[in-house]
Design a protein around this nucleic acid. Structure first.
Length: 114
DNA sequence: CAGGTGACTCTTT
DNA sequence: GAAAGAGCCACCT
């Protein structure tokens, strides 16, 4: 992706990256942005997800917020949404720590070509 | 044009 | 390790 690309193109790239995350794996907002060739685009990834609708059939639950070097967390503020995401992830094998964090070295997806 | 806002992230207290 | 500040960028008032 280049600098002058339209936002529509960037959103498409973002959705494509998210769709490529395999079951049982997660990716941080920043990682998604970077892979979609949008440096510092983590905010845009959040916007893209917020504006997405169910008909896209995106594995939105696999996008998580980076917490520190080793752990990630669910970004949704709303408790219902957060629990829903957590349940979906657990159903596909992602394990949560007692403090609600996800260990990245276990569940972060490292794309083969990156 | 001028703020305010967020499903973000990093640094500094 | 919590809290605060700053940087970020598309969107909406």
């Amino acid at each position: 992706m280049a600098q002058g690309d339209s936002n529509a193109q960037r959103y498409s790239a973002i959705y494509a990256v998210i769709r490529a995350i395999p079951r049982g794996k997660v990716m941080t907002y920043g990682q998604v942005a970077e892979l979609a060739s949008i440096p510092r685009g983590h905010r845009m990834v959040a916007t893209a997800l917020r504006n997405s609708d169910p008909t896209m059939k995106l594995p939105w639950q696999r996008v998580v917020a980076k917490r520190d070097r080793l752990r990630a967390r669910i970004a949704i503020v709303d408790d219902r949404g957060a629990m829903r995401q957590r349940r979906l992830l657990q159903k596909e094998g992602v394990r949560f720590e007692r403090d609600g964090s996800i260990r990245l070295h276990l569940f972060a997806w490292i794309p083969p070509d990156a």
